[in-house]
């Protein structure tokens, strides 16, 4: 019961937050000197009449407050509006979200599957050669810029011909049977996943290692060891339980990154995800599309934090009692 109240309270708190986010971003986009019609205006074959009509159609002739009001009204009704080219924003996002989700969930799944155990091993074998090697590797992973790594891998794909050069599906995708389709998508995913995996693995492994080392150094672990409990039990039953809490907070942020974390890599690999769509929208000041993506990002972040906090309530009794008071 308390938990439901807590959730409701948290959700109510997000409303003013979302309003502030939307006002600030709307104003930023509209007050920036980006003219959504600049390209049309510089095209000699586009007449003044067409320009005037476009200005009216996009609502640019109205004052910013009115523009915001119109946008907010339809947003609350659940209508994301149309892009400056007359396509439905919701439809455009729907086309891209599954692609981005596919990429980011695979990456998050893999990094957690590999990163957490590697962090534990490194912490348990602290200062051993294995720990050192992992440290060197993760430092490289953290230091290498994602776009640079992506470009290197693309060149690798061109030189060897082992992998397709960007994209998500081959041009004859429509004629493949199911098995070939799965294989085709897998082949296209390997390189972008490698880039994102390498980069986020590093951070996660360091985090896990650090958390566990902190805990292993604490008094109750020493006490447990002194009691003569086996090292395995000390680490996995007592220490790990406490070391995992900061990781759950991290998971909340990873959730927010599901839809927005891979833009740079998507761009280099020409991956048909949200990143490319939104980059273009920002450049052209396509207000409905930009606003929809910003709001989506904000909601995902809030939701991610909420989920993390809820999970913490379940894993950490200290928060549980603190939250209900």
């Amino acid at each position: 019961m308390d938990i439901i109240k807590y959730i409701l309270k948290r959700i109510l708190q997000t409303i003013p937050l979302l309003i502030i986010v939307s006002v600030v971003s709307f104003a930023l986009i509209r007050l920036s000197p980006v003219d959504p019609l600049a390209e049309l205006r510089l095209n000699p074959s586009i007449s003044q009449e067409t320009l005037d009509r476009e200005r009216e159609r996009l609502g640019l002739d109205k004052n910013i407050a009115v523009q915001y009001g119109l946008w907010a009204k339809s947003f609350i009704k659940g209508d994301l509006g149309i892009t400056s080219n007359g396509e439905s924003v919701a439809q455009k996002l729907k086309e891209r979200i599954p692609n981005t989700l596919l990429l980011t969930t695979i990456v998050i799944f893999l990094t957690w599957l590999v990163g957490v155990p590697l962090g534990i091993i490194a912490a348990v074998k602290w200062k051993s050669p294995l720990d050192r090697i992992l440290t060197v590797l993760t430092s490289i992973g953290m230091a290498i810029p994602s776009f640079f790594f992506a470009v290197l891998l693309l060149i690798f794909a061109v030189k060897t011909g082992w992998f397709p050069i960007g994209g998500l599906t081959s041009s004859n995708f429509l004629e493949m049977n199911l098995g070939q389709k799965v294989l085709d998508i897998t082949k296209h995913l390997i390189l972008p996943v490698t880039v994102l995996f390498t980069i986020s693995l590093a951070g996660l492994q360091r985090q896990m290692r650090g958390n566990l080392l902190d805990v292993l150094d604490s008094d109750y672990v020493k006490f447990a060891r002194a009691k003569g409990i086996s090292e395995f039990k000390v680490v996995f039953k007592h220490a790990l339980r406490n070391a995992i809490n900061p990781m759950i907070t991290l998971l909340g942020f990873e959730f927010a990154g599901l839809l927005s974390g891979a833009a740079l890599t998507e761009y280099v690999f020409q991956y048909p995800g949200l990143g490319r769509l939104i980059l273009e929208a920002v450049m052209k000041s396509d207000i409905n599309l930009v606003m929809a993506s910003l709001m989506m990002g904000a909601i995902m972040l809030i939701l991610g934090n909420l989920i993390a906090d809820l999970l913490l309530i379940f894993t950490d009794p200290r928060i549980r009692t603190g939250g209900t008071k």
Binding site: I155, A157, V158, I165
Partner: peptide, 20 residues
């Protein structure tokens, strides 16, 4: 007849070299 939608010119060159 297939038109690939390629985000930038460098990627287009790579795609040509890669035979795509």
């Amino acid at each position: 007849l297939i038109y690939l939608i390629v985000g930038d010119a460098n990627n287009e060159v790579l795609k040509f070299e890669g035979g795509e």
